[in-house]
Every structure is written in C-alpha cells, then in structure tokens.
Nucleic acid binder design. Structure first.
Lengths: 159, 159
DNA sequence: CCTCGAGTGATATGTTATTACATTTCTTGG
DNA sequence: CCAAGAAATGTAATAACATATCACTCGAGG
C-alpha cells in the first residue's frame, strides 16, 4: 500500500475490491450506494491519500456529477458515518478506510512533509484516557488519534 | 474546574495564577509576553472553554486591541507553540492549557452537547500506535488525542 | 545614531463548511 | 399500480476558519 503502510502495492485490485465490499455492505444494510457516493469513495480509493473536500469536488465537477459543496459533503458524511471513509481532523481532509471489513478505532500516522497518511488501529478507552473518562463520568463515543511526524520516505530529506 | 474536570472551582484565582505562571515562563525563556498575547490567554482562561479564533477576536475588537484575524491567529500561534494553549482539532477551536507547568501530551474529552472540554494526559507512542510507527519507520513528533462524547452534565439530558 | 528583528495594523484573499430551499428519486403500504 | 412519505440531489448564498502580504512601530545591540 503506497500510503497506508508507506509501501507499494497492486492498486487497481484493491480499489475494485474495496468498492465491491462497500457495495455489498450497503446492500446488506439497505443503504443507498448512489452514484455520487460510489464515485467519491472511488476517487478516494484511487488517490489513496487524504483529500480535501474541495479536491474531491473538483473531480466530481469535471465529470458533471455536481459542482456545489453540499454534494461532496453529503457524500462524505454518508461514507464517514458508515465507516468507508475517515476524516483526518488535522488536515481537514478525508481518506478511504484501510480496514473497511470490521469495526475499529482508527489511528493515523500523518507525514507533515508529504502528507501521506497511514491508518492503524488503537484500543478504545484504555490507558489514562479511559481512566480519566471513567473517573469524571464522561461517556466516550468516538476517539480521534492522529500522530504527526515524518514518514520513512521523508526522514532523510528533512531537517 | 468547571470544564477541565467538569467540576466547579475558584476561577478568578486560577486565572490569575495561570497568567502569572505564563508571565514567569516567558521571562525565563526571553519570550515577549505582549499585551495581545497576554489578553488572549486571559480571555481563554476566563472563559474556561474552547473558543473559536473569531470568538476571541470579537472580544479583542471590543476592547480595541486589534480587529483583524491575523492579530488573534498570531497570538494563538505563539501561545500554542509555547504550550500555554492547545488547539482542539475537532472543533477548530482553542483552549487554555490546564497543566501549563510541565510538558505533556494532552488528551481531550469533548462534550458534543455543551462543547465543554476536559484536558487529561496520555502516554506517548505507547500501545499499538507506537508499535505501528516503529514497525513502519515513522517518526512521531506530535500526537493528537481527542475523545468525543457526553459529559456528566449532559448525559441525562440527551438521547 | 543606526540598523535589525520581532511584533503589530490593515487589506485582501484563500480555504473549508453550512444553511436553506426547490426538485427529483426511491420505497413502501394500500 | 399508485399515492404518500422518506431519502437523496441540485443550486445559490453565506458562514466560519485561516493565511499572504506589505507597511509601520518600537526596543535591543552595534
């Protein structure tokens, strides 16, 4: 995987597989996997990188699939909601999920130089954060974990 | 602490103390604790809540301390850089640091209902995230941990 | 006294996200 | 099949967040 694990891989295959999985999951859950939603996910899978909403919108617009912001934001909301895509808070950007087949708490390694994003998983409500939440009576629903730094490719080329 | 621990506390005192600590730290490090920077920190301490840059700017503007965005963003950059303030990525907002006296990796509990923010600490590069980073050769420089959910006050009043 | 650098003031602009409302398309029960 | 309601989309306008740039001030050090 070029960004997900900072390694190369057979990309066309994984795009196709991921789309098929998403389609199957939507069918199973009676969700509408509409053309716009499908295409947005496909764009993210193909690019295999975090993209801003307006970057995605530009691609859609070039294809005549809607040129206004709400089009892409609605599609992204849907995809995020159902776990096909993650939002990278630090970048105000979106990336296709690398492990769409099972529920998980995503964690990201974000290269500050090339903006590559690798997705891994974390344990929820463990460690001090979980303790703090329990102690204070806070009910955790979602956890964002994002590490910023340098990817292997960029370590040599940077300060 | 009303938001930091979802509990009440003597606020005027802690504002004063935190400002004095910040002033001392700046003096020790030869940093300029200018009126704008001081006032921005004070506003965040008084409000004791995550605030958007433009919310802070509105307060500054009302006091004649600068009415343009760069004023507040520059002050926030300084305060974040030196650990007096944290940026809450999920909210695009800023909150005064609750533990300014020592270096730490902050973690936040963010109430999705009332937007209260509690700050705790986490262990850096431990657990699966650290393992993933090591395995792939990624060099972590900063970690963002933000949990979203319901604070004790809001649990009763929400779905 | 002069210069240099950090900070500030001000204008403009870029980027990200939402509100609002009209219209179309799906789906489901009669 | 068909009507009614729900879900999705099209479109315009605007809100919210952030940065680029340049001119100006002021204090520290030569």
């Amino acid at each position: 995987m070029s960004t997900v694990g900072f390694r190369q891989h057979d990309h066309a295959h994984c795009v196709h597989t991921a789309l098929a999985q998403a389609e199957a999951k939507c069918k199973a859950k009676r969700l509408q996997f509409t053309p716009v939603r499908r295409r947005v996910l496909e764009i993210l899978l193909e690019k295999h990188k975090a993209m801003g909403a307006y970057d995605i919108l530009a691609v859609l617009a070039a294809e005549g699939m809607g040129s206004q912001p709400p089009v892409v934001y609605r599609a992204l909301d849907f995809l995020v909601q159902h776990g096909f895509v993650h939002r990278i808070e630090q970048l105000n950007a979106y990336a296709a999920c690398a492990h769409p087949t099972h529920d998980h708490v995503p964690a990201f390694l974000i290269c500050r130089s090339c903006k590559a994003v690798a997705e891994t998983e974390t344990e929820l409500t463990q460690g001090r954060l979980g303790v703090a939440a329990n102690t204070s009576g806070f009910q955790i629903e979602r956890v964002v974990v994002e590490a910023e730094g340098l990817c292997p490719e960029c370590i040599g080329t940077q300060a």
